[in-house]
Design a protein around this nucleic acid. Structure first.
Lengths: 124, 124
DNA sequence: ACAGTAGCTTACCTAAAAGTGCGTACCATC
DNA sequence: GATGGTACGCACTTTTAGGTAAGCTACTGT
């Protein structure tokens, strides 16, 4: 039983040719699907968050990883960082347009995984 | 300019609570987005492939990683393995229905990344 | 005077993923 | 009889993501 599933458009060169680990696509994919990257996107997709809010909302994340993951996503133009020069410091994070584009593609995958992960992993 | 983007349905418990690294969703996500997992899915999504075809098509993959990634995806019910007891050995790999469901969600993300990765990574 | 808070940075360490290189069985071909 | 293709498994090493813990600035509250 063949399932007719075609991608919207051809992806020339995605398989052919070399795939060094340093390929830009691989780098971005790693950032987006990193341990904490996904959770930060999930959180920010609900709306802007302050540093401390993210830290509390994403239980288990260390300050180091929150900082470095946020900086990575900021450098990728996926997360917008807005620091207000007040004391105590206040920093707000939100998704950029690019970040929303990314999460729009990432969330369906995450939803599917969340729905199926138990069935997939259970049989062990 | 607010972009109105809502996820199809609520994802309760995806943010709240703890997120151990051993969470089933994280495991499956890691398998799907692993270095070679994505490339194998991309290849198999074009149709069934033999071991050697995958090895040649996915340049740079080592035999060890091809074998272990395929076994992981097979254990997850994403890839179907069909070994014919002939000499020399012949083994065909294809996507299961579940694998096609997964790739249907993964490919839009990969397409977007492929289109944007250069712009994202270039400014460094 | 001292602790607490917000938002980090830095140095160090570990565990898991991936790479390297070897061996194997069986046969066809040169 | 030597070489090479096919589909792997195993042992070892390297690389990298992530964890742990401490410190730091510039203030505020008690």
């Amino acid at each position: 039983m063949e399932v007719s599933f075609r991608v919207s458009r051809p992806r020339p060169g995605l398989i052919e040719g070399k795939y060094p680990a340093e390929c830009p696509s691989r780098i971005v994919l790693n950032h987006l699907t990193s341990r904490w990257g996904v959770l930060i996107l999930l959180a920010l997709e609900q709306g802007p968050r302050r540093w401390g809010e993210l830290r509390r909302e994403i239980e288990g994340i260390s300050e180091k990883m929150l900082a470095s993951t946020l900086r990575t996503l900021e450098a990728d133009g996926i997360v917008h960082r807005e620091a207000q020069p007040v004391i105590p410091p206040r920093v707000d994070y939100s998704l950029t347009n690019r970040g929303r584009e990314a999460s729009r593609r990432l969330l369906p995958l995450m939803d599917w995984i969340a729905d199926n992960a138990d069935d997939i992993v259970a049989p062990r």
